[in-house]
Design a protein around this nucleic acid. Structure first.
Length: 488
RNA sequence: CGGAAUAUAGCUCAGUUUGGUAGAGCGCUUGGUUCGGGAUCAAGAGGUCGCAGGUUCAAAUCCUGUUAUUCCGACCA
């Protein structure tokens, strides 16, 4: 037996380990198109769970789903100057509308009078539409959401973390007042952090992006930053307060309660398939993927052990019965009936990160027991559970796995996060450690050369800071604290 | 988009220096013995060597171009 299922181990080569997890857990593959991935059933199943849970939360908070076109007229992007600056460099452009056959080769034909871009985000096309819908304060607020794909031409793609095409959810809201819009930006940030911590079991820091890292066209960009097992930061969600920038660019105006014309206040916010990368890099080990039960497409795998032909039918029907009983308790499961060697089958399910494994063979049949193992345990450890009250016990195990994964990720994050108060601390920490440093910071502080030296950046200005201190970069008094880290 | 490395069977790789009939292990198929921790024996299938040109009697091997992947940088969610 191999010592570990995954080679290389995460301690020796984290990025290769990450790619190996994706391969061994059968989540996704490269496609013939550079930067675009094929998301396979197990990987897409995780995305569907994310969609299912988040979609419900969005609807509970009075958002409605819509769909806008993939193609956006070029002139829309030109209307907001910061927006152009941010996205012009990474837009795929559609310039022709048919193909011509020349000596067996197809070449683009019939240029479009006005080219389209493939959406990198939809603020512009949505803004354009709502300019004609919004007439009165009575029309507001408008709270919509879109599940879609977007394209941002990437120079260095990585599966799930940075692909040219990715799947996401983009919410857009239009409000009567600045106060309401700002509050909504915060509400969505909170909704995301609850979702990511409680379902994906990933602890996050809430923060505000510095002007350099802001969404192009936003007045404020809020974010959630999570620490991966290698100590690097991954932005897990964003929420933007767009002020009146887009409403002015697209003329979203209304008559207010005093009968005066006013520009609306807008927000946008999103999460993407990148979260799947965050799940992998937060929880997985050298035996493969580990999925938090609340996000696992299948929470339980039932493995029939077919040794004696006369008992096989009984074992299979017991598996089916247990599957039904589990489903009645909202536990998703599947029977792995593939004709494979038992050990190999077990390892495949370990690598895929299925939270709970149940084995049922002649012994279990006789004892009215099942053998149960959790993905977070040693692969060899098994316990016996009676079939009566099985769902309650499984629910408890799933709950414990979910809790343990969050606790592990949290204690690791805490362990790899320190407060620094001087340039010397900065130097000492990053020359020896991977992780997060928290420091006082004054907005007037210049970009200090230490950031470049250690290839770290300001991930965000933390929302939680309350006390006054001295910024080590500018020596000025400040209430701001920043999170400093290497970033994905 | 700059720098470096790689591309040969489903996977991991040898063969390239010195041009001469395409190799191994694992996996796959079939049959046997097995099966409660990545089994084993036997037989078999499977590749115009990333792609396009060029040199040559002859190219996986030499030359030019190109594409993809991995890592580093710049850029970004």
């Amino acid at each position: 037996m191999k010592e570990f299922a995954i080679t290389p181990q995460k301690q020796s080569n984290f990025s290769q380990w990450y790619l190996e997890i994706i391969k061994e857990a059968d989540l996704a593959e490269h496609s013939p198109v550079r930067g675009c991935m094929i998301i396979k059933p197990h990987g897409y199943g995780i995305w569907e769970k994310i969609q299912e849970i988040l979609d419900k939360k969005l609807k509970e908070t009075d958002h409605e789903n819509v769909y806008f076109p993939l193609l956006i007229p070029l002139k829309f992007i030109e209307k907001e100057s910061n927006h152009i600056k941010g996205f012009a460099k990474e837009c795929a452009v559609v310039t022709h509308h048919k193909l011509k056959n020349i000596d067996g080769k197809l070449v683009p034909d019939s240029p479009l009078e006005e080219p389209f871009i493939i959406r990198p985000t939809s603020e512009t096309i949505i803004g354009n539409f709502y300019s004609s819908c919004v007439k009165s304060y009575r029309d507001l607020p408008i709270k919509i959401n879109q599940w879609s794909n977007v394209m941002r031409w990437e120079l260095r793609p990585r599966l799930f973390l940075r692909t040219s095409e990715f799947l996401w959810q983009e919410g857009h809201t239009i409000h009567e007042t600045q106060f309401e819009a700002k509050a909504h930006t915060q509400t969505m940030l909170d909704l995301y952090s609850n979702f990511i911590e409680n379902y994906l079991a990933i602890p996050v820091f809430k923060g505000l992006k510095t002007p350099d890292e802001r969404f192009p066209g936003a007045l404020e960009t809020y974010c959630l930053e999570a620490q991966m097992q290698d100590g690097k930061a991954l932005q897990a969600a964003t929420s933007h307060f767009l002020g009146q920038n887009f409403s002015k660019a697209f003329n979203i105006s209304f008559l207010n309660r005093n009968g005066q014309k006013e520009f609306a206040w807008t927000t946008s916010w999103g999460i993407s398939t990148r979260l799947i990368g965050a799940i992998i890099m937060s929880h997985s080990d050298n035996n493969g993927l580990i999925l938090p039960p609340l996000i696992a497409p299948k929470q339980v795998v039932l493995i029939p052990i077919l040794k004696q032909k006369n008992l096989n039918d009984k074992i299979i029907s017991l598996c089916k019965k247990i599957k039904t009983i589990l489903l009645e308790h909202s536990i998703s499961s599947f029977i792995d009936q593939k004709d494979e060697n038992g050990g190999e089958k077990v390892w495949k399910n370990i690598k895929k990160g299925i939270p709970v494994r149940i084995e049922i063979g002649p012994i279990e049949l006789q004892k009215h027991n099942v053998s149960v193992s959790c993905r977070t345990w040693d692969p060899l450890k098994k316990i016996e559970l009676p079939i009566v009250r099985l769902p309650d016990n499984i629910l408890l195990l799933l709950k414990n796995i979910q809790k343990d994964l969050f606790q592990n990720a949290l204690s690791r994050t805490i362990k790899q996060t320190i407060s620094i108060y001087s340039l010397n601390d900065f130097h000492n920490f990053f020359s020896n450690n991977a992780g997060f440093a928290i420091s006082f910071w004054h907005p007037n502080a210049n970009n200090h050369p230490l950031f470049a030296k250690y290839k770290v950046s300001i991930r965000c200005i933390l929302l939680s800071s309350q006390h006054e201190g001295i910024c080590p970069f500018s020596k000025q008094k400040t209430y701001n604290k920043i999170l400093i880290a290497k970033a994905y």
